[in-house]
Nucleic acid binder design. Structure first.
Length: 612
RNA sequence: GGGCCCGUGGCGUAACCAGGAUCAGCGCGGAAGGCUUCGGACCUUCAUGUGCGGGUUCAAAUCCCGCCGGGCCCUCCA
């Protein structure tokens, strides 16, 4: 690519011209365009088209240049390359492992995602978070960052207490043949909430249980720890089925029991960031001082309660302590132990261990409804540090259920509706994956009737999870997703299987061809070949921009376009039956395609299948 | 009272942040076609669209202001 840009620079020695390149909308307008004349028009007070004409008039093309023609058109300067030469350069570049890799950013980044209350199974809303988070982890790793993938376990909140109420107070059996997270979320939690409605006094019991869990070291807290562990394992099983796992699980009880909160609270007091309310309705509470900050000043009651009048701490308070740990603003008080595989968990009795926390940057994947709470955390950090804290709330829209799907679950609604764990109005990820896997299995078997059962299952599993992941991250993060059980089972059109299929086809060609011959410039180049080259040429810019914005959507869009161009190419340009230079070129083009698609897959978490 | 997000053909989305060249792309659904083919989870063609009103600009889906619809958030829940 550099080669191309430096050629242009030689012709048109203007500053910053590299940043003004874009793809022309139509092939008749050339292969690359610059918008620099529109910028110059403002400075020079001349119409853009005149400047373009002047510049083009002064250009003298050397012989044998990569650039064959330069044209002014409506203020744009369009470059026409020798397409065969350009193709050779691009294909050679794109086949390299390093193609598209940005300059490495070595900073340590903590990405927190999923963070589902450990009292239920993951539903389709939670999985949007996990899919985004895992893709962001992948993108940051690609960019060279040292990434810690963390899941925050809110094991001291009321939702866990509700389950314990069910077991301990209502005497619901803890034995079940169901997957344990589903049993607790679908059955126990819903039942307990029904009892609350009929018998509000029971809620006092819950508050007792919450306090016992916070204090730790008693029968109730031990039971809660055990139940949480079992639910958490079941949740992680679902995530593993999605191809997602963590480096660390941070339990909220650890924030309390390790005294991390106490230290954080003391630091907040020392920094004069909090005060105790002496009178009024908030008497006895500790509040975070936000009223003098411009982003909160307009609120009616700007200051935020972080500690209750009975001395217990609110969620936001614990979140502040946790954020301080993320950024190394506080000493690491956690003990750590292994929680299966390579995943660590914070544990009161665990050992001291360096290497966690103290990141240069953190990204919290949390849905948009918590923007205010996240702003409070960020504000607290800035009050405590004398440097800029790179704390990022990555927000995204929620997932709602379509009218039809809600009705299928037995609820009467007049439109798409929010999910509710309390009411039992939700769709579990396990169920969606199950249905997707079944469908993918049938489709795969149709095409590979002789294949082994194990391979079929494995392939179906990979198709299913890729499809679900892609569905969750291919659209803009600010959009609300309306989940429809029927609609989501599609495996054609703009879906992961479409991409996987294109990839599998390309590998088949390469496999049949044997070792690809050495790349040589073809004598001529067809339109579809040229479109392939153009798509491959766009890769570095797309990845660079997507990594900078942490935009999963841009990678998805690029990958879809690339595969779609490949399918067209595949349709009208035979590779194996081509001859001589053309065959050599096409094979290398296919190879470059496969390599680039693999990178896209790696970035967003789609499985690259050789066969499907 | 304050703040955030969304509004693009029947449905779902892209382009908006960093305004530009064309039929405003694409997928689903609808209509019509394509296997003497390296795998039809594919390809080709057609129909239908920027919520409303102003402003800025040579140029607005994009920026600014005001409406109208929908969703969300703003202290002892998480």
């Amino acid at each position: 690519m550099k080669e191309i840009y430096s050629e242009i620079r030689k012709l048109i020695p203007l500053e910053n011209i590299e940043n003004t390149f874009e793809s022309p909308p139509e092939r008749a307008y050339g292969d690359l365009a610059t918008t620099i004349c529109f910028l110059l028009a403002k400075q020079q007070k001349k119409p853009p088209f005149r400047i373009a004409e002047e510049i083009v008039g002064s250009v003298k093309l050397p012989k044998n240049s990569l650039i064959e023609k330069v044209e002014a058109r409506g203020g744009y300067i369009n470059f026409f390359f020798n397409r065969a030469k350009l193709a050779t350069i691009v294909v050679a570049e794109a086949a390299k492992k390093t193609y598209g890799k940005p300059k490495p950013d070595r900073r340590r980044v903590i990405v927190e995602h999923t963070s589902v209350n450990p009292n239920k199974a993951l539903h389709v809303g939670h999985i949007r978070n996990s899919c985004l988070g895992d893709a962001i982890v992948r993108m940051l790793k690609f960019a060279g960052n040292d990434v810690q993938e963390v899941n925050y376990i809110d094991d001291s909140g009321s939702q866990v207490a509700d389950i314990i109420v069910g077991f301990k107070v209502l005497g619901i059996s803890a034995e079940t043949a169901m997957k344990f997270d589903q049993y607790c979320g679908n059955e126990v939690y819903v039942r307990v909430n029904k009892v609350y409605e009929a018998n509000p006094d029971l809620q006092a019991k819950r508050n007792e249980i919450i306090r016992a869990i916070e204090n730790g070291n008693n029968d109730t807290s031990k039971l809660a720890d055990k139940v949480v562990g079992k639910i958490l394992s079941a949740q992680l099983e679902t995530l593993l089925r999605m191809g997602i796992s963590f480096d660390l699980l941070v339990k909220e009880t650890s924030v309390l029991r390790s005294k991390l909160w106490d230290s954080a609270f003391q630091m907040l007091k020392d920094a004069n960031a909090v005060y105790k309310e002496a009178e009024g309705k908030n008497s006895g509470c500790w509040l975070l001082k936000l009223s003098d900050r411009p982003e909160f000043a307009k609120l009616e009651n700007a200051d935020k309660i972080i500690s209750r009048s009975d001395g217990t701490v609110l969620y936001t308070g614990k979140d502040i302590a946790y954020a301080m740990w993320k950024h190394g603003l506080i000493a690491d008080k956690f003990g750590y132990s292994l929680f299966g595989g390579k995943t660590w968990i914070t544990e009161a009795g665990g050992r001291k261990k360096g290497g966690f926390g103290s990141a240069d940057k953190s990204v919290a994947i949390v849905d948009v409804r918590q923007s205010y709470a996240q702003d409070v955390v960020a504000a607290a950090l800035s009050m405590l540090a004398n440097r800029k804290i790179d704390y990022n709330h990555y927000d995204y829209g929620v997932v709602t259920l379509s009218k039809k799907t809600a009705e299928q679950l037995g609820f009467e609604v007049d439109a798409a509706t929010h999910m509710s764990g309390r009411k039992g109005l939700f769709v579990n990820v396990d169920d969606v994956l199950g249905a997707l896997e079944k469908k993918a299995y049938d489709e795969t078997k149709k095409r590979n009737s002789a294949a082994k059962e194990k391979w079929l299952r494995d392939t179906a599993r990979k198709i299913a999870r890729s499809a679900l992941r892609y569905e969750m991250i291919k659209i803009g993060r600010e959009n609300t997703i309306t989940f429809d059980a029927g609609e989501s089972l599609r495996l054609d059109g703009n879906t992961a299987p479409y991409l996987q299929y294109a990839y599998a086809r390309s590998l088949k060609i390469l496999e049949k061809a044997g070792k690809p011959p050495k790349l040589a410039a073809p004598d001529a180049i067809t339109d579809t070949e040229s479109e392939m080259v153009k798509a491959l040429m766009d890769f570095p810019a797309v990845v660079g921009k997507a990594a900078e914005n942490l935009s999963t959507q841009e990678i998805c869009r690029y990958a879809f376009n690339l595969c779609s161009v490949f399918n067209k190419f595949y349709q009208d340009s035979p590779v194996l039956r081509a001859e001589g230079k053309s065959k050599a070129f096409r094979l290398n083009l296919v190879k470059a395609f496969a390599t680039t698609v693999e990178k896209c897959f790696g970035l967003v978490g789609i499985d690259a299948l050789e066969k499907m």
